[in-house]
Design a protein around this nucleic acid. Structure first.
Lengths: 148, 148
DNA sequence: GCCTTATTTTTAGTCGTTCACGATAAATGC
DNA sequence: GCATTTATCGTGAACGACTAAAAATAAGGC
């Protein structure tokens, strides 16, 4: 059984290595993970890979367009395999959990601010903040005040 | 002449110190600055303040609601005095310059994603990416590919 | 002006990430 | 298959941004 990951890496002009395959596989199971978390999962399963190599692989695959890197405030860089669409994210202010969010309004409204101050607009990135279901149950009060 | 900054700090229940006043004044002239930049401006003008104290003051004033902290990807935390509204930002992918952007569509559409995956939604944060006017003139090609 | 305690300084230390470089192993050509 | 090339990985060190702890200082109420 030949994984699609193998094809993807090869098509990107990169060498197919055990580390890259393993990382893509783990990232499939745990999207929105940071480098340290991915490294932990990797050493747990089998592959011996250094944390620096994890950063290396993440950087290479992101540059190749196989991964998307997001960087919510107060958090390390997170990675996901879902690329090529303009979906957004919602982040839990209490525990940092991240979920994908489809932009209901489509592209146009969000990407058309009234005044771009002379900037040429390329992309719009939306991050939603809130409480995830488990944290709601725990009655955890978010540390940041939310005034309307 | 009593500065409004003095009142603001006092009203927040914080002590009015030279460092805090100086930082607010510098941040007025250079919005969207990071701690290191602010520190540089401060030591240039007059006030001898340590970089750690700058972080301290920024943290205190942000917690008190006098400052807003933003954290664009690939950048240190930036601060601005404009608080209490829901304006967004546009960041230059080439030089990192930041400008304020009013959200033309208002509140509702952006803050109403179709599915929040069980999250309770609190706020929406929009970051626009593009090229600032000076970087456009320099014909600088952004390092990230822009498809569509 | 004094006293309490918030604030600042000083000094270390942490976290996430990048860099340099020798060691290793994919992929190409034979 | 096997050798060669060179992309990739491991190791170790370093970096920037930020936080922590403790001692020194100074704001502001009395």
């Amino acid at each position: 059984m030949r994984s699609s990951a193998e094809h993807e890496i090869h098509r990107a002009g990169l060498r197919v290595t055990a580390g890259r395959l393993a990382l893509l596989e783990v990232l499939d199971r745990f999207p929105h993970s940071d480098a340290a978390t991915l490294h932990r999962h990797l050493v747990e399963t089998d592959a011996s890979i250094s944390i620096q190599s994890v950063h290396n692989v993440l950087s290479d695959l992101t540059a190749a367009g196989l991964l998307r890197r997001i960087e919510p405030a107060n958090s390390a860089a997170l990675f996901e395999r879902r690329v090529g669409d303009n979906h957004h994210h919602i982040v839990c202010t209490s525990c940092g959990a991240v979920a994908d969010v489809e932009c209901v309004v489509g592209h146009a409204p969000c990407i058309a601010p009234s005044d771009t101050a002379g900037f040429t607009l390329a992309t719009a990135e939306v991050t939603f903040w809130g409480l995830c279901a488990p944290c709601q149950k725990l009655h955890v009060v978010p540390t940041k005040e939310i005034h309307d």
